[in-house]
């Protein structure tokens, strides 16, 4: 009963990756946006379990759907 909840690798859960700072900067420059204009993800989001993400980090989400493979980005926020 004391087992820790881990987020399971699941076929429907897209891969989440923490981006290094320089890549984060690149993304912000590419879209000419400030950090506040990025979509958000809570630090406690189950998709981030096992990922060493801290508040402010940019997460790359590798999505796959009918329109093909593409990347989505989310900024980690406090709960």
């Amino acid at each position: 009963m004391t087992k820790k909840a881990e987020s399971l690798p699941h076929q429907l859960r897209p891969e989440h990756i923490v981006l290094p700072d320089d890549e984060k900067k690149k993304i912000l420059e590419k879209f000419n946006i400030s950090e506040a204009q990025l979509p958000k993800i809570k630090r406690t989001d189950p998709a981030l379990v096992g990922l060493e993400a801290s508040v402010g980090d940019l997460i790359r989400i590798k999505r796959k759907d009918l329109s093909g493979d593409y990347d989505y980005f989310r900024r980690v926020i406090e709960d």
Binding site: I33, Q37, L38, P39, Y70, D71, Y72, F73
Partner: peptide, 15 residues
């Protein structure tokens, strides 16, 4: 309307 990004690529394929 605030310029915040909702999708980085329209529809995932911009088509």
């Amino acid at each position: 309307s605030r310029g915040s990004v909702v999708q980085f690529l329209y529809g995932g394929d911009a088509l």
